[in-house]
Design a protein around this nucleic acid. Sequence first.
DNA 1: TTCAATTCCTACCAATCAACTAGGATATTA
DNA 2: TAATATCCTAGTTGATTGGTAGGAATTGAA
Lengths: 143, 143
Amino acid sequence: MILSTRGRYGLKMMLELALNYGKGAMPLKDIANKQSLSDTYLEQLISPLRKSGLVNSTRGAQGGYELSKQPSEIKVGDIIRILEGSLAPAECVSEGETECSKADYCATRLLYEKIAESINTVIDTITLKDMVDDYHRLNNKTK
Amino acid sequence: MILSTRGRYGLKMMLELALNYGKGAMPLKDIANKQSLSDTYLEQLISPLRKSGLVNSTRGAQGGYELSKQPSEIKVGDIIRILEGSLAPAECVSEGETECSKADYCATRLLYEKIAESINTVIDTITLKDMVDDYHRLNNKTK
DNA sequence: TTCAATTCCTACCAATCAACTAGGATATTA
DNA sequence: TAATATCCTAGTTGATTGGTAGGAATTGAA
Ligand code: FES
Ligand code: FES
């Protein structure tokens, strides 16, 4: 699996917050209940999202979390990279890493670069708004 | 990292065998030396490749491994899937798995499907022959 | 003012996985 | 028969995953 629970749960959380966007703060417990996930675990995942500025938090009673900007401005790539780290196929293609010494003559690196590029294109093209739209399309069909 | 050493070393091995294609069997120790990898570890990785029919083996002295078909007929996706398992982003998109019960109304699944599709397109388009060509282009430049 | 709701933070834990290593049986050829 | 290889099974070690536990700090409402 390319995505661990960190990325997958994180995406679900952020989708839930996107669905709630404009309706005020949403407590983590509500998110956890809606998605049937452990709230103490989600707590750990939302912390880096807050520190990266994707969500704002309000402490105390009636507090909770909300997106810091419009769903259309948050790419799923932002979320995934915060929670999973880079999705590079191998170290020598990942951004922060020191470049591999064999980079000049390594044929596998070209492959990794192509894989990385195609993944990045997908996750940086799709925003939370797209997922909200998908959600409504999927769930309002029967109504 | 999307690819573990299994996939990455496996690709290097197969590239080495592709470079040696048509020249008879190549012992694993030679591959390991050329790529500076542990031969006892590579032994474990080539076993599933042989069982899947991608490489043929010859036992005993002067034995070794060779590709079972032309480099142009072996997709890197074949190699990666054998050594890494599916590259699906999440369980509910992976082929063998029982389909997730929420599949009908799950918006994250659509995202996973798009990621999976783009990865599969890349790794099933590129063959060992392409990597061999890249290798020669990269390494004969200075000669 | 006090209490309940809530975020925030650190530490711990068990199970699994990743990346090897070790040791030996079996087959082939010079 | 010795040297060279593949083949097979079983460890081992460290990191990662997917959590739990416990409590401090903050805030709104009764
Ligand atoms: S392994 Fe890093 S460039 Fe090839
Ligand atoms: S989690 Fe499986 S379909 Fe959404």
